[in-house]
Amino acid sequence: MRKRLHIWVAGRVQGVFYRAHTVEIALSFKLTGWVRNLPDGRVEIVAEGEEQSLQKLLAWCRKGPPLAQVAGVESREEPATGEFEQFALRA
């Protein structure tokens, strides 16, 4: 059963290729959705897929890519909509 996870990541997560790495990781876990930078310095992620893959993505978000310094991760489950065909970077 597909699920949706909405994630916000705080810390030094902009300008460190966090979004690009998130796309690679999400695609490797066969997830769909998107990732974008927020004006307040956080990164926002919406991902849909199997529970186990979403949990792997969430665990990765807590570490991030090598240059990132993650200070906190918030997440919430939401109803999956199936609206995404792939995982993409949003402006």
Rank of each mutant, 00 (worst) to 15 (best):
R90H: 13
K3L: 12
T22V: 09
T81G: 13
R36C: 06
E48F: 05
G41Q: 10
H6Q: 12
K3V: 02
A91V: 04
H6N: 13
E85H: 10
G33I: 01
V35L: 00
T32R: 04
K3E: 14
W8H: 13
K63H: 13
P66C: 09
L89I: 07
I25Q: 13
L57Q: 01
F87Q: 09
A71I: 07
C61L: 04
R90E: 11
S28V: 08
E78I: 03
I25N: 05
G41E: 06
H6V: 15
W8R: 15
G64D: 02
A26W: 00
L89H: 09
I7R: 05
D40Q: 08
W60V: 00
L89K: 04
R4T: 11
Q52T: 14
S28G: 09
R42T: 14
V35D: 10
Q69N: 06
A47M: 02
E50Q: 14
A59L: 09
V23I: 02
S53N: 10
H6E: 14
G33S: 01
M1Q: 12
L27K: 15
H21L: 11
Y18G: 03
Q55V: 07
T22G: 04
A88K: 12
Q52W: 10
A47L: 04
F87H: 04
G49C: 06
V43S: 02
R12W: 05
Y18A: 02
I25L: 14
R4C: 06
A88D: 11
E77R: 14
P66G: 09
Q14W: 07
